[in-house]
Simulated scan of single mutants.
Amino acid sequence: MSEQENVVELLRDIKGLLSHTKKVMNVDDLAIYTGLSKSKIYKLTQLKLIPTGRNPNIRQKFFDKETIDAWLMGEPNLSDEYLEQQFNKQLLKNKK
């Protein structure tokens, strides 16, 4: 590995560490922070199973880091089967 590649890798590591100091995160930040996929985050958001910001004037989803930390420690059921069941229930509810 060249010295330039080492520097680039080090800068990526630093950028990742700095992203964990943000108070407010977007979906990309949250995916990196939690290790959850973006699709799982969107499903959780759709089902209102993950705490999000409440600003109706902003379409993009934002997440408060402290609230997410507390939510993660609450041991929510994030299994794919559970999320699919909840998502399907919501779809059926919306069709009626």
Rank of each mutant, 00 (worst) to 15 (best):
M1S: 14
M1H: 09
S2M: 02
S2L: 06
E3R: 12
Q4H: 09
V7W: 11
V7K: 14
V8I: 14
V8F: 13
L10P: 01
K15Y: 11
G16H: 12
L18E: 14
S19G: 07
K22C: 09
K23F: 06
V24Q: 12
V24W: 11
M25P: 05
N26E: 07
D29R: 06
D29L: 00
L30R: 04
L36D: 03
L36K: 01
L36T: 05
L36I: 03
L36A: 02
S37Y: 01
K38A: 08
K38R: 15
S39D: 14
K40M: 05
K40Y: 02
K43V: 09
T45P: 00
T45M: 04
Q46I: 05
L47W: 04
L49F: 08
L49S: 04
I50M: 09
I50V: 14
P51R: 02
T52P: 07
T52A: 12
G53I: 02
R54L: 13
R54I: 11
R54D: 13
N55D: 15
N55W: 01
P56E: 03
I58T: 09
I58M: 07
R59L: 14
R59A: 08
R59W: 08
Q60G: 05
F62V: 08
F62Y: 15
D64F: 12
D64E: 10
K65W: 05
K65R: 15
K65C: 06
E66T: 09
E66H: 06
D69M: 02
D69I: 09
A70P: 02
W71H: 00
L72R: 05
M73D: 11
L78R: 00
L78I: 09
D80M: 10
D80Q: 09
D80A: 15
Y82A: 08
Y82W: 12
L83M: 11
E84I: 08
Q85L: 14
Q85V: 13
N88Y: 01
K89E: 15
Q90L: 15
L91K: 15
K93M: 07
N94V: 04
K95V: 14
K96Y: 13
K96W: 07
K96L: 14
